[in-house]
Design a binder for these strands. Structure first.
Lengths: 343, 343
DNA sequence: GTTAGCACTCTCTTAAGATGAGTGCTAATT
DNA sequence: AATTAGCACTCATCTTAAGAGAGTGCTAAC
């Protein structure tokens, strides 16, 4: 168990290091307002804190920096429920000031603004399209050989694919088919479309449509909806400007991890609902060793839709980013709930 | 005017430096097969080449590296019409092996494969959507308040926007309006849609549609088509692995230039039709000082559609990348011409 | 015109000393 | 018993010096 004084010292060390990115020594600590005892006392306390694993040295005679355990303690116990700075608050409100009707627009704008405010990298996972429900299917012939199939979901998301048009299928038949499919499949989650077509609708179609086989083969391909969430970025290269990343090797690793979107989105998706902070190796990813990831989920009503995340150095401004993400995710949930539930 | 021997030496210097990224000295040059005279002779020739501005030293007693002028001469005069390596050729052919019906798919795949083959960064500008022609307009109501407008173009490109649905407009009226618009606007380039609506169709609409004003205002917004080409990347972070970019400052500049898509696409678009090579400062961009950009346009029939570009260090393998881009752009043009002109 | 030879230049590496920030420990003080 | 002053010690960083190696420019010989 830490004494009050140890906690105070830990707090000041973390705050100072977050601010200046330099190891903190006993002498400079003793000069802080909050601290009323001598550097020697601090040295003793720091020795204990180090033994307990909360801080560490970069070399034998350096000042201390927080360890991952230290950051963890700081995040869990030392972050007073922080007020958001009013300037920050104003900017956030401006995201949601104008009425927007498209989820992607909101998501993109949030990502951009968050990264600009913090100079960290923001990552937003959109909702998985596969859970949307079919609102309307449409087939638009382009020429004798090809046509575009369009799927509109209940959230206004549009998927489309252009395909080869089997010869021997007449336009009127296509229309008939589209009508049947619309009637039977409206409201079905996209992920279930294919199964539903084969199980329940095949019989009906076969009765009404010539060339049934050709058409379903083609449509089956079309209904292969991308299974993953869309991913949006803000400030992808912001990390290059952090003083923590002067080592080209680290930069390389980090950047290629960010490029590798699948892994990143998996890493983010794993996090639990609500706010979550993963520090350094807690992310189970070697490229993330010196990074922290803060995630917040957003939802419509009670249903989780996606995740907003901020990626920064372990030394990131938790006390600012956490309330920032809290409010953005809450606002986003509110806007989206209004958008999709009232309608 | 350069003597044959000077040209030979320049050629070998450039080839060697492209390969090993190290300044080339007279002694190592004299050991090359192609070279049958002594290092002293080479030194004399190199002194002349340097005076003429084709090569330069990194410091007083270093070997020589090509200057931008040297690369320029190399590209203009020393690149024998190069055969593409058969391995490369096979990979390229595989891009176009399977039948694809969507331009974006082809473009994306090309970008990815080009970057993987070369370990440079590939950038592909898609065609500007605004020049596509309207094939079909569709409005799909989502709920009482919102609807999604969908525009399908003759190339199978789909644009969509979700908008607020003015109260007091009945579904049947919307349908009537959509029908009129489809009839009158089919085949019109997207960029002209708005003007056409106001000039020619307004009168007709006003006669048939109640709430005409509300609807056109909303649709006007919807028809604001993004004016720029879509841009696709392959291997965005490949440049980090080039030995030329060990300086973090350069990396920063380059990366943020790449992130800044508008400027980049402008820089690429400026280039003339066909193949173009811009070396270092020829790109008029400080972040590109140590980079070259090779661009190739692709087209449908005679109409230029877009540009494929490869971004690498000035020290890039021109002799490989140029034929690579030539063939990819030609193949792409062929596929797209077949796709869009026969139909 | 070409080449061998040589003095010279500059980078890079290594080592050594000087500096300074910071520590750990001990003994004195409160 | 807790705190603090004092001091020896450690280590990164900076500066300087020296040596090695790659390469050049110039001169004189071929």
């Amino acid at each position: 168990m830490l004494t009050d004084r140890q906690v105070l010292i830990l707090q000041v060390i973390v705050d100072d290091f977050i601010r200046y990115a330099l190891p903190v020594g006993s002498r400079s600590l003793s000069k802080k307002e909050e601290i009323s005892f001598s550097s020697a006392t601090i040295r003793n306390e720091m020795a204990d804190l180090e033994e307990l694993g909360f801080i560490e040295k970069t070399h034998t005679s350096s000042g201390r920096i927080p360890s991952e355990k230290g950051y963890r303690y700081y995040v869990d116990h030392l972050l007073a429920p922080q007020e958001l700075q009013s300037a920050d608050l104003r900017i956030i409100k401006s995201i949601f000031a104008e009425r927007i009707y498209e989820l992607e627009k909101i998501v993109q704008k949030s990502a951009r603004i968050l990264s600009e405010m913090t100079s960290y990298t923001s990552i937003v996972l959109g909702p998985a399209v596969k859970d949307n429900r079919l609102r309307r299917l449409q087939i638009v012939p382009l020429n004798r050989e090809t046509a575009t199939a369009i799927i509109v979901t209940d959230t206004g998301h549009v998927e489309n694919r252009t395909f080869h048009f089997p010869s021997g299928v007449s336009p009127s038949e296509v229309e008939k088919m589209v009508n049947i499919l619309n009637e039977k499949l409206s409201g079905v989650p996209l992920v279930e479309l294919n199964a539903k077509i084969y199980k329940e609708i095949a019989a009906i179609l076969r009765r009404h449509i010539q060339n049934y086989d050709l058409m379903t083969e083609v449509l089956g391909e079309t209904f292969k909806i991308p299974s993953n969430e869309k991913i949006f970025f803000g400030g992808k290269t912001n990390m290059l400007n952090q003083p923590d990343f002067t080592d080209l090797e680290k930069v390389r690793g980090l950047m290629s991890m960010i490029e590798q979107e699948d892994g990143l989105s998996e890493m983010i998706r794993q996090n639990p609902e609500g706010i979550s902070v993963k520090i350094g190796r807690e992310n189970n990813n070697s490229a993330m060793e010196n990074c922290s990831l803060i995630t917040a989920t957003y939802s419509v009503g009670a249903e989780k839709l996606g995740t907003i995340a901020m990626l920064g150095p372990t030394r990131m401004e938790y006390s600012r980013v956490i309330p920032l993400l809290k409010i953005v995710s809450a606002d986003m949930s509110a806007v989206l709930t209004k958008l999709y539930q009232n309608g």
